[in-house]
Nucleic acid binder design. Structure first.
Length: 892
DNA sequence: CACTCCCGCCAATTA
DNA sequence: TAATTGGCGGGAGTG
């Protein structure tokens, strides 16, 4: 067959074929005759090995083979095969190798090898994430297709999605221009804004308003929505801007991709189930309509999801609902986007965001270059879409055009949004319910913010429950946010945070949402406490300084090690130090924290500082955090929402890192634990060790920081977000995470004077600030008692914060402090273990139950128990490092 | 059997 | 008209 194909292909694009072959071969040998046959022959030769080999060869002879081989080569080369390449002689070897490779993989060349996701990774590997602006790399579809050994059709699938995110733009006929991720954040920002307008706002508002219950009722509506969406999407700024605009129809893939992304950005939970997405995207059809249509949509979504997954923007998860588990995807990309805000926010925080963003985007785009082409393309096309016009106008006219567009879009979007929400709600609601049920609903119900605390106090166990919920809910999520209560409850449940809080005792800071930093490249992520959630805030007086703190934290976090790894990444961003803009907030964004979720952030605390760590290496990371922070701050109000989201985040995190340990290190551990109230500032970190899956990552969460430290009650704190940092383990080893608290201060001046001051102080004394090392550890280990379950319970300090990410909670089962992590100071670490990352949710959930969560000792109630734990732990470790192991977590 | 999603036909567009 | 794009859905692979 293969042969046949070739023949076929040849006619069409002989050139292509040859090139391909060449390229492939090329690797091996510079050149041979372009003729493929020879090559083929060569390859076959290797066959001798085994009968099967022969078969393989034959089969492979055809293009498919080539593909595989190349793929393999690429994949492996760097690692294993590097040597191969080059010489002609090598060819044979290569072949051989390939064959060997084949054995490995090839045997199952299965689809996985050919998957779009894999293909996309290869594709992406060819281009730098952050290409120099000066250079523009052009992508030749034919070339790429040949090199990757796939049909061009596949490349279109990838490119279309990338184009929707503006990672590439079409320049000409077979040519695309690679932009890399420089504009990704802006693009996402725009999408988010657009999404918010359309879906988001509605969603949020609705969500909030509606309770879970409502959800149910409303679910139906979903279907109703109108169809227009698509167009909407298109319009979505990005598209417009980008040029995606479509020409023909609507290029559904592009549009769908954008819409899909928007859903994530708008979703509090950051989790979107396939069916919901499909429904929303189907627009009109909605419900019933063709089942076939739905199926087709789903297929497309998988295509898109595969690409987005390769980009590291989403990951697959499963949401468990009443009916059963549903496939879903969680957004793991950046939530906030730094730059953008300025303009937007500046104008009017909420109202205008989009416009601003769009503008910005537009500007950028234009600048970026490609614009022309795009335009050309679009232009023809656009007619239909307002977008272009809007765009154009935008440049000239600030608002009106946009608005128009927006309006239109909005309406559409709204519909969609409504639908989505409904769906989501339903889902979430269900989920929530489910989860809750699972957990025990008992607590949930009311406790909204506070409750977080409530539960906590009670038992450590309860915490556990919550967690699970949280987790799930998260998944389900989105909805939750609306209903604060739910969210809260869920949040509360999240142990992780609580745990942190607990340890600290106080406080607080930890808990809240944290902003985190991501270091792209490497495995490191920093989380900064964001603090979004306000809920807690009540208790906490704090203000929000979170942002500052986060920033600081960010800086600090990435210590050297991090830097190293991330180094490349670092470069990109830049900057932002800035700010935290408090202003910005965007709702959704905060959620972005999700990723952090582990941490859970909820509250807004802010601590001024974050982390001590000196080196921060990556600016980029910083940026992220900052962004988040900003969000967080903004969010504060929204905390509730966030909460809901958080859970999700948690999940994600969990997934990502199954194991985690969190540490907190406050600068001075002690303080934290000890006094809770005190200053939240202290930076804390949670360190997550990499476990299985994540081996490479370490997470640090900063716990602290609540600026408000002063007043913050411990309890409140819990809610706070915790900043986290992920550091490569290696890095950790080398460093004491501990970070010093110190840094921060400079960075972020905290708004709040008081706490800032405090913070600063703390920094200086690292230890001071943090009271004691808090451990949040989960109970399990630590806890003396409660923990019966394997799962740990974290003790959560009572902090209501529970929200913490479910993940944590679950994972937390055993918490240990690791000394390594802590190194410097006594810090508390939480360790989460998770078995497998991926599957998290469902599975995790179970565990979660058992597991312990963190409790917040301090806040809640009883502290006694907590205290014990804490005391023990902390004391034990005295110095700090202790591990909490979650034995039980294992469920996973 | 359900979930994924690869594959490639073939229509819409473009050159 | 030929080539490029890309919608679409059959149906295979996987669990």
């Amino acid at each position: 067959e293969n042969i046949f194909d070739r023949s076929r292909m040849a006619p069409k694009t002989p050139i292509k074929n040859e090139p391909i072959d060449l390229s492939k071969q090329k690797g091996c040998t510079p050149e041979r005759n372009p003729i493929t046959p020879v090559k083929i022959i060569d390859r076959p030769q290797p066959d001798p090995w085994t009968p099967t080999a022969n078969l393989k060869m034959l089969v492979s002879a055809a293009s498919p083979d080539m593909r595989d081989r190349e793929k393999k080569k690429e994949l492996f080369r760097p690692i294993e095969n590097s040597e191969q390449s080059d010489t002609p002689d090598s060819l044979q070897y290569d072949i051989v190798d390939d064959s060997t490779v084949d054995e490995f993989e090839k045997q199952r060349p299965s689809r996985k090898q050919k998957s779009l996701g894999l293909l996309c990774q290869k594709f992406l590997a060819r281009y730098p994430n952050y290409p120099l602006s000066t250079e523009k790399t052009t992508i030749s579809l034919d070339e790429v297709a040949s090199i990757l050994g796939v049909e061009r059709r596949r490349i279109y699938d990838i490119v279309n999605v990338l184009e929707s995110l503006q990672l590439v733009s079409r320049v000409a006929k077979n040519q695309y221009c690679w932009h890399g991720r420089h504009n990704l954040s802006q693009t996402l920002k725009m999408l988010q804004e657009a999404g918010e307008l359309q879906y988001g706002e509605l969603m949020t508002s609705q969500h909030k308003e509606q309770d879970l219950e409502y959800k149910f009722g409303e679910q139906k509506k979903e279907t109703i929505p109108d169809s227009q969406d698509r167009p909407l999407l298109e319009f979505s700024e990005p598209d417009c801007i980008s040029a995606s605009a479509n020409s023909r129809k609507d290029k559904s893939l592009r549009i769908m991709s954008q819409k899909f992304v928007m859903l994530f950005l708008v979703s509090k939970t950051k989790i979107v189930t396939l069916d919901i997405a499909a429904k929303i995207l189907i627009e009109e059809t909605q419900d019933t309509v063709d089942h076939s249509k739905f199926k087709t949509k789903v297929r497309r979504l998988y295509d898109i999801a595969n690409v987005l997954t390769s980009l590291g923007l989403i990951k697959k998860v499963h949401v468990t609902e009443e009916r059963g588990r549903k496939p879903a995807f969680k957004w793991i990309g950046p939530v906030e986007f730094p730059g953008k805000t300025d303009e937007l926010r500046g104008h009017s925080p909420t109202s205008d965001p989009l416009p601003g963003a769009q503008r910005g985007a537009c500007a950028q785009y234009q600048t970026s270059a490609t614009g022309k082409q795009r335009f050309t393309r679009h232009a023809s096309f656009n007619s239909a879409r307002p977008c272009e016009a809007a765009r154009r106008k935008v440049s000239s006219e600030p608002n009106s055009p946009r608005q128009e567009r927006q309006d239109e879009n909005c309406s559409k979007m709204i519909n969609l949004a409504a639908v989505c929400r409904q769906k989501m709600k339903e889902d979430t609601g269900n989920k929530a319910c489910d989860t809750e049920t699972i957990l025990n609903s008992s607590k949930n119900s009311n406790t909204t913010l506070p409750f977080s605390l409530l539960p906590v106090p009670g038992d450590s166990d309860f915490c556990v429950n919550p967690l699970p919920q949280a987790v799930f809910p998260v998944v389900q999520a989105d909805v939750p946010s609306f209903s604060l209560p739910l969210g809260i409850s869920s949040q509360a449940s999240h142990p992780s945070t609580p745990a942190a809080s607990k340890t600290e005792n106080g406080k607080p800071t930890l808990v809240p949402s944290q902003p985190f930093l991501c270091f792209p490249s490497s495995s490191l992520f920093m989380l900064c406490g964001g603090l979004q959630e306000n809920n807690l805030s009540e208790t906490l007086p704090s203000s929000g300084d979170v942002g500052n703190r986060s920033a600081e934290a960010q800086a600090a976090v990435p210590p050297v090690g991090c830097q190293k790894r991330s180094s490349h990444k670092c470069s990109s961003p830049s900057a932002p130090v800035d700010d935290e803009e408090p202003a910005a907030k965007k709702q959704t964004l905060e959620q972005s924290d999700l990723p952090l979720s582990l941490v859970v952030p909820k509250k807004p605390s802010e601590s001024p500082k974050a982390e001590p760590s000196p080196g921060s290496g990556c600016s980029s990371a910083v940026h992220l955090q900052t962004n988040r922070l900003d969000l967080a701050s903004l969010a504060a109000a929204e905390a509730a929402n966030k909460e809901s989201t958080k859970p999700l985040d948690c999940q994600e995190q969990e997934k990502q890192s199954q194991n985690k340990e969190t540490d907190e290190h406050p600068p001075g551990n002690e303080h934290i634990s000890k006094e809770n109230a005190n200053q939240p500032f202290q930076p804390r970190y949670l360190y997550v060790q990499p476990t299985a899956g994540l081996s490479s990552f370490n997470f640090l969460f900063s716990a602290n920081q609540a600026p408000g430290a002063i007043s913050l009650a411990a309890n409140q704190l819990p809610s706070l977000s915790v900043p986290c940092v992920m550091v490569p383990s290696a890095a950790l080893a080398s460093f004491p995470l501990v970070c010093s608290p110190s840094f921060t201060s400079p960075l972020s001046p905290v708004p709040d004077g008081s706490f800032s001051a405090a913070a600063s102080t703390n920094f200086s004394m690292s230890s001071l600030a943090s009271p004691t090392p808090v451990f949040i550890s989960t109970t399990a280990v630590v806890t003396p008692k409660v923990s019966p379950a394997p799962s740990v319970d974290p003790q959560q300090p009572a902090h209501p914060a529970l929200h913490l990410s479910p993940v944590l909670t679950r994972s937390c089962s055993a918490v240990k402090l690791d000394s390594p992590v802590c190194m410097g100071h006594p810090v508390t670490l939480l360790k989460l273990q998770q078995p497998s990352s991926a599957p998290l949710t469902p599975k995790s959930i179970r565990p979660a139950h058992h597991e312990a969560f963190f409790k917040t000792p301090g806040s809640l109630g009883d502290p006694v128990a907590w205290k014990k734990n804490e005391g023990n732990q902390t004391r034990n470790a005295s110095s700090v490092q202790r591990r909490l192991e979650i034995s039980s977590t294992s469920p996973d």
